[in-house]
Simulated assay, not measured.
Amino acid sequence: MDNSITIYVLSDSIGETGEQVARAAVSQFYPCKFEVRRFPYITSEDQIVEVFEEAVNEKSVIVYTIVIEKLKNYVVELSEKYNIPSIDLMTPALEALEKVFGYAPKRESGLIRRLDEKYFRKVDAVEFAVKYDDGKDARGIKKADIVLIGVSRTSKTPLSMYLAHKYYKVANVPLVPEVPIPKELFEIDNRRIFGLIANPFKLNEIRQERLKSLGLNNNANYASIDRINYELEYSKKIMEKLKCTVIDVSNKAVEETAGIVIEDMKRNFGENF
C-alpha cells in the first residue's frame, strides 16, 4: 500500500493557516510520507489550473483558504473535474459567523495580515512613547511623528500614550525653567511640535493632588501658584520661539486634545503622516 501523499495548500493570502491545519491533520495518520506544497497569493483561475494539473499526477489532496467567491468556486469545480479531494477551511467558519452576525463576510483576502501589521505598529508606537517619555532621550525628538512640550501635569504622558494607540510615535519633553531645552526641538519641522498649556489654578489642583499621592506636603513650591505662573510664562516664551501650535488643555479630555493634534497633522502632512 502506497502510504505517501502530497497536500497542496492554496490561499489568496500567505497560506500559513492552511499549511498548519494540513500538517496537523496528516500527523494523525503517522507513519506516512507526506509533502506539503504551499501556493500563496492565488489571484487568478490560471494559477489554480496549474496546481490541479500538477496534483492529478500523484496521490494528492487540495486544502484551501480562499475567501474570494469566484476563485473558491473554481477550486470546487476543478476538484470534481480532476477527482481530487479538496477541503475548504474557510467557508464553514464564515457561514457559521454569518448566521450569528446576520450579515455577509467581506470576502477580502489578507485581512488578518493587515490586522497583524496594525497590531505591531501599535506596539512599536507604545514602546516609542515609553522610551521617549518625559524627555528621557532627546534623540527621540527627531524620530517622532509628534512632539509634545509643556510644563509638568499638562497631560503630556497620557496624550502620548493615547496617540500611540492611534499608531503615532510621540516624544514628549517637559519644560522646566532651570533645565535647558533640547536643541533638537529647533532642528525639526515645528508643525510636528505641540505646546500644551493649562489654567494655573487647574494645574495647582492637579499638582496638589499629585503631592498628596506621593505623601508629600502639598504646600511645596512645585504646587504654588507663583511657581506655576512662572513656569507657564517660561513655557509660552519657548513655544513662541518654536512657533509651534499651542493647545490649552485646561478643560479638554485627552481624547479631545488628541483629536486636535491629529487633525492638525493631517492638514499639514496628509492622511498618512
Rank of each mutant, 00 (worst) to 15 (best):
V176P: 00
P105W: 05
I225F: 15
M161D: 01
K237T: 07
C244I: 08
V76R: 12
I146F: 04
N83H: 07
I188D: 08
I112W: 03
H165A: 02
A22M: 02
K266S: 05
K136Q: 15
L216V: 05
A198N: 00
N73V: 01
K252D: 01
I225H: 02
Q208G: 15
G18Q: 00
M265G: 09
P105K: 10
M239G: 13
I193E: 12
N229G: 00
N221L: 15
E255N: 14
T6R: 11
G215Q: 10
Y222Q: 07
Y132P: 08
R121I: 06
E95C: 02
D88A: 12
N3H: 04
E98F: 00
F194R: 11
R37E: 07
T154V: 11
D2R: 14
A164I: 04
D137A: 04
P200W: 08
P40G: 09
K72D: 01
L211Y: 12
S13Q: 07
G18K: 01
Y167T: 13
L211Q: 07
A96H: 05
K33A: 09
E35A: 08
I238M: 13
P105V: 13
E54H: 11
I68C: 07
L214G: 08
E240F: 07
E35F: 15
I193V: 09
T43A: 12
D134E: 05
I206S: 08
A220W: 02
Y230P: 00
S86C: 15
R113H: 11
K99T: 13
A22R: 09
M265I: 03
F201S: 12
F120L: 11
F101A: 12
A138F: 07
I68K: 15
I62V: 14
D2W: 00
A198F: 01
L232R: 03
L97T: 15
F29I: 06
S86Q: 12
T43C: 08
M161W: 04
I181N: 03
E127I: 10
A198P: 05
D46E: 06
A125T: 04
V36M: 07
L10R: 12
V67S: 12
V61N: 00
C32D: 08
D88K: 06
A164C: 04
N219M: 14
E187N: 13
K142D: 08
N204V: 06
Y167A: 09
F52D: 05
Q47T: 08
I149E: 01
K131A: 07
I87W: 01
V176Q: 03
V151N: 08
I146W: 14
V130K: 13
R38F: 08
K72S: 10
N83K: 14
R114H: 07
E19S: 11
G195D: 04
V179A: 03
K266W: 09
K252N: 10
H165L: 06
E271N: 14
L185G: 02
N251L: 03
K142L: 13
E58C: 06
E231G: 01
A144Y: 03
M1E: 06
Q20S: 06
D88W: 03
S86G: 03
M161F: 13
E108H: 15
K143L: 14
L242S: 06
R139T: 10
E205R: 15
Y162P: 09
S11C: 12
R107D: 01
K169N: 04
P177F: 02
C32F: 00
